[in-house]
Design a protein around this nucleic acid. Structure first.
Length: 305
DNA sequence: AAGTGCTCCAACCGCCATGTT
DNA sequence: AAACATGGCGGTTGGAGCACT
């Protein structure tokens, strides 16, 4: 727990809300009751003004966090079950550190809880098994130097949660477009892009190339949340891609981008999802390659676009 | 019993996207 | 278009409690 009297230290940034006179640190049962009772009556939302209305000396952010991670009736307590752990592992392999996205697939579990569980248990477990918890690949076979990893860590930190890729661009997690010139799927190397431009593609992939956005629009598929959900389910339910499948997936090009034959990525989708439906991040976007014939098909795509 | 080190996880942080004015 | 408000995210912190000496 944080020291209730300590400020944000050396930072000169002003906090999200005035902390003057506001309580910090662990919540008391009385505060919990006040918050829970208020939300039961008035509902969630308007967090900034909620504390005052509920009679709490907390900032809105703190109230929201307490409700989301602890007081919400749907929050499941207790040990993470083996099947939940397995699901977390699978989802992390697919999604990386997108905790809210992972939590959205595990009923009753919060992003904070999953993040903590990963950092305290699963990460160590994988390391003890000789697996890199970031890449899910054998530690000894990692092709990325520590400097690469450090660089990404820095970029990732700067970019916060906006990356639609894993630290090492994983073939199952590619974002990009089908080039009109080459007929190839060109997956953006977002690390490089960040280094070059200082920004990353947001919400819409065409942001990455504003002078050609209309042309790019034609090439990018978006899908709705329910489609994404079924799509992700199919990914969760399948085991890791087979070796043969990997062989036809995007390969690293000299320019730092990833390319794959367009035919291979005909069922590759640019996914855009909102936070409301599954608790996904508002910034969620990503592209997934999906080879499983039982899973996502072009028919699904056409149906929704 | 007392001291030390470690682990866990609730809570906080800064940052960013989106919506509103 | 700009400024502001709000909600939400992943990363990080540090106190409580446990294990060990």
């Amino acid at each position: 727990m944080r020291n209730p009297t300590s400020g944000s230290g050396t930072t000169s940034k002003t906090p999200c809300c005035s902390k003057v006179g506001l309580k910090r640190g662990p919540w008391t049962p009385e505060e919990d009751e006040l918050l829970a009772n208020y939300i039961k009556k008035e509902g969630e939302g308007r967090w900034r003004t909620l504390p005052k209305r509920a009679g709490l000396l907390r900032c809105g952010k703190s109230c929201r966090l307490r409700w989301m991670n602890y007081l919400r009736p749907s929050v499941k307590r207790g040990q993470i079950a083996p099947d939940e752990e397995d699901l977390i592992l699978r989802l992390h392999r697919l999604l990386g550190n997108r905790w809210s996205l992972i939590a959205g697939r595990i009923p009753g579990r919060t992003d904070n809880e999953i993040k903590n569980y990963w950092n305290t248990h699963l990460s160590k477990k994988l390391i003890s098994q000789g697996i890199d918890p970031r890449t899910h690949k054998p530690l000894s076979n990692s092709t990325h130097s520590s400097s690469d990893q450090d660089q990404f860590k820095a970029s990732s930190s700067k970019a916060n949660n906006r990356l639609p890729i894993s630290p090492n661009p994983n073939p199952t997690e590619m974002a990009g477009i089908v080039s009109k010139n080459t007929g190839y799927f060109e997956a953006t190397n977002l690390e490089d892009q960040y280094e070059q431009t200082g920004s990353l593609p947001m919400r819409n992939a065409n942001v990455q190339n504003s002078d050609n956005s209309s042309a790019m629009d034609d090439e990018i598929h978006y899908c709705t949340d329910d489609v994404f959900s079924s799509f992700l389910n199919s990914l969760i339910n399948e085991e890791a891609l087979t070796t043969s499948q990997h062989q036809v997936l995007p390969q690293l090009q000299p320019n730092g981008n990833f390319m794959a034959p367009a035919a291979v990525v005909s069922d590759t989708l640019m996914i855009s999802s909102s936070a409301q439906t599954f608790g996904f991040g508002t910034s969620w976007e990503g592209a997934f390659h999906q080879n499983d014939p039982k899973g996502f098909t072009d028919e699904h795509v056409e149906k929704h676009f």
